[in-house]
Design a protein around this nucleic acid. Structure first.
Lengths: 244, 244
DNA sequence: AATCTATTGTCTCAATTTGTGACAATATTA
DNA sequence: TAATATTGTCACAAATTGAGACAATAGATT
């Protein structure tokens, strides 16, 4: 979430901690498990609060690098596919009591104490596409869990994080034909059916098999490999990979 | 531009001035003069620098409202069509010497003095669509001009403002069929040819007249009115307006 | 008043893309 | 050997788009 990891329990101002005040990011990290589109959610067991993984920008680091750093911390992956989708700056999202609750429960704050994380934040939303099977998510300093949730079965999220997920999903849907979305959500080699399932999971609707296959092959972005034999009692599908 | 209007010459910190530190916005304000797509550019005559109109977010004001406030100050218009397109947070865009030059030349700063505007800013880019003929642009506190420039004849812009314009334009192009762009750039009543010219100006390419007319009419978003007689020696076109 | 010119509104037909179903070609099971 | 589920591909209909033709017409020219 926006108001997430604290580098030091004792830094009371952003400047002391080396971060830019008032600026956060939140990331909607998509993964595809073969059937369902999922996202990573941080949990705070003492508070029963859930949030998107997020963080802050160091004084001498770019916004993009800050997000990459946070994603690396959560997933261990570098070179993650990232897309910025919206920046959230309403007044309604400024609820310091929520952050305070988390920090108190984790011992990062004493009651009544001031802290820069309790100030107002504007948060930049990014979505990431990662290969579901390569990742063992790790919680950050403030949270105690970081787990996959199907996009249709999310827990109640703090602040405006649910709106963030919706906006990320809308953006992803709008980009599905522009940005080779499958290349980041699928393993190196995949069947046409798997690719179709990625589309269906993102769009939330069924796609006609023959039309999909014709269109995708028509783009000439796929290379065909050997067939995949899975022991199923039917014709084995070809495997594909993205060219280049 | 990002580092634009100063509420008081004497506030040395963001907090004293009532603004959120490190956060700015820049606006790409599009207008259509009947032929060309133009945007508003602020000029600083003493420095020969040019920039997008921008500003800062007050502590108790939403990001959107801050942008609306700035647009009202520049144009006198309320209820402007606004769309956020990207947030810029690279390290390269942090060049305090540029801001310092402007502030020194305008007497907003003494040499060697500290000022919160000289700190690093992350800027949220918005584009606006306004009716060109309704507006008499006004400069802000730091600039001494605010004028229309055709998008293909922009002066050299400071920092990453040229990149901002490109990104705004890309976003506008992507939204052209989703968001009823013409409704905000055209007068209440307009001809099909004018509408087509808006499309051509935004897309930067010629459009086939008959196909365009067929498609637009097929959307059933236009109401047809009386014909427009302009004294030209040919058939007079119908006027249209957007339904609702 | 008749003719000419530029532009508009609409239509037609070809070209392309998409929707829909059919069907043969398999891997495995029964 | 036959049955079953799925895949790859084709064929044809339906819809959309490209490209041009053409009549209508407001004013200018004669």
């Amino acid at each position: 979430m926006s108001e997430n990891p604290i580098p030091s329990k004792y830094a009371k101002t952003a400047k002391e901690s080396g971060f830019l005040a008032h600026i956060a990011y939140d990331s909607v990290i998509f993964g595809f498990d073969g059937t369902t589109l999922k996202i990573l959610i941080s949990g705070y067991s003492n508070t029963k609060l859930f949030a998107l993984p997020g963080g802050f920008v160091k004084e001498n680091e770019s916004l993009d690098d800050a997000v990459r750093r946070g994603l690396f911390d959560r997933t261990g992956l570098e070179n993650i596919y990232l897309e910025q989708f919206h920046t959230f700056g309403s007044l309604e999202r400024y609820i310091p009591a929520t952050i305070e609750k988390i920090m108190l429960s984790n011992g990062h704050l004493k009651a009544g104490e001031n802290h820069w994380l309790l100030e107002r934040f504007i948060s930049v939303g990014y979505y990431a596409l990662i290969n579901f099977n390569e990742v063992k998510p790790k919680p950050d300093e403030l949270s105690d869990s970081c787990e996959w949730y199907p996009i249709n079965e999310l827990p109640p999220l703090m602040l405006d994080h649910h709106e963030m997920v919706q906006k990320a999903l809308e953006t992803l849907r709008g980009n599905i034909n522009k940005k080779l979305v499958g290349a980041n959500l699928l393993p190196e080699k995949f069947t046409m059916k798997q690719y179709q399932q990625v589309y269906e999971a993102i769009l939330g609707e069924n796609i006609r098999r023959t039309t999909f296959q014709r269109q995708i092959l028509g783009l000439e972005i796929l290379k065909r490999h050997e067939k995949q034999f899975l022991g199923k009692s039917h014709k084995a599908p070809f495997l594909y990979s993205f060219i280049k």
